[in-house]
Design a protein around this nucleic acid. Sequence first.
RNA 1: GCGCCGAUAGCUCAAUUGGCAGAGCAUUUGACUCUUAAUCAACAGGUUCCGGGUUCAAGUCCCGGUCGGCGCACCA
Length: 467
Amino acid sequence: MTTPYTFDHSAYAADLQATYGHLTDGEESGVVVNVAGRVMLLRTQGKLAFGSLRDSSGEIQLFALSAVTAGFDEFVKLHLGDWVGVTGEVVRTKRGELSVKVTSWVQLAHAQHNFGDKWAGIADHDLRYRHREADLWANPETRVALTRRSAVVRAVRQRCWDQGFMEVETPILNAIPTGAAARPFKTHHNALDSEFFLRIAPELWLKRLVVGGYERVFELGRVFRNEGVSPRHNPEFTSLELYCAYWNYADMMTFTEELVAGVAMDVLGTTEVEYQGRPFSFATPWPRRTMADIVSQACGEELSVHTPRERLAELLAQHGVTAHASWGAGRCLEELMAETAGDQLWQPIFVTDFPVEISPLARRHQEDPELTERFESYAVGRELSNGFTELNDPVDQRARFEDQARLAAAGDDEAMQIDEDFIKSLEWGLPPTAGLGIGIDRLVMLIADVANIREVIAFPTLKPLRD
RNA sequence: GCGCCGAUAGCUCAAUUGGCAGAGCAUUUGACUCUUAAUCAACAGGUUCCGGGUUCAAGUCCCGGUCGGCGCACCA
């Protein structure tokens, strides 16, 4: 059967609901519209039929009568899920349902598979993720979450633009995976006969653009990390990275909280929400506390990066964590925070002043060379953003890379490699600069109030089916 | 990668102690001129995820595998 190549669409369901809300029971508007969508329910009653037409905006009832509707006998044989285009007058039925009284209609596409139980939808996660196109019709909350994701991305972009940041794109195929601590995906270019890695972060490229004179840049894009999959981790995810010349990390914290709270306002119209049943507020300003302060309070004793490593390792052991031989006091302090306080930081907070040992790209703190001017924001017990005053001293950067290389040699497969090109770029001169990274998927989870990252990714990474 | 749990009709789910594999919706057929998850009647629908094993008998018990969920690890 040949179906039409076009349809002269003139109205969306939600617009009709809004425009013709005033019609009283049994009233006819005299206005003829062309609507299209899927028939999600069909109730036939002899020579009458009522259908629920759903489009991207919402639903409107189709009201067909054998005396009025051309091809009525075929209309009532439509399958649930079929796409139809309908022409008819906007009316309200005697029983009060706003409807399009079908005069003519055309099947635009047939649905060979159903869209799940009309009440329960599709519950099977495997089916929902592998065939999101069906899930979107079967489970309205899926459409809400993914639509919200789009709104978040739009708001993030707009706010960055509004602050004078230029959107740029940097390589995804990299000879050296760097800019974060993670295992990369490896691939191969045939013509160049070279090994490439999918980027784990765009950080170093973006800083080179600041060296090049773009003072405010950002990139909103996919990064890839060859790590475990969990309700909070997808192997490919979207990050916002943003760099601003002449700012330090305190400036960037202010920017971060205003960006996130602003995006919540843009998308939800409020900063006060619930996440998984618990109240949560995006309202600014967010508290700022040093890592040492937080760990000290959690452990009930004064601790810092200057505390003897043995003491920190002892405390870690009390929490069932064995400090690896390669861990210095800085790494131990971070692990201790993760064990004692990290997952309890529900309301947004900036954790500041990270040890230099675990921050190879951040500039040393002006008041303590063992620390860096680095922050991470936490919300609902999870890391939301990461930022710092950028290290712009090529000599120190080389030393930091060399420390990383030693870790790699000791078996740390997430340690960074020495990137000579990047060091050379710093030799050309990076002005004082602050940088920021935000996990967009995690931000969307917060704003969409979902617990699983796959619910905010249209097609999450799944294991391919065999056979 | 490790542990726990799950997979039964197109969809959502039952099936007691190991004893004939079921319901609702969808599909098909019929009735019905204001339905709202319409209703009513009837027909049909199965490799119980896959492969082995135990047993007179396996959806159910055992072993192996596949995919998924959750937790741990890793990370954002």
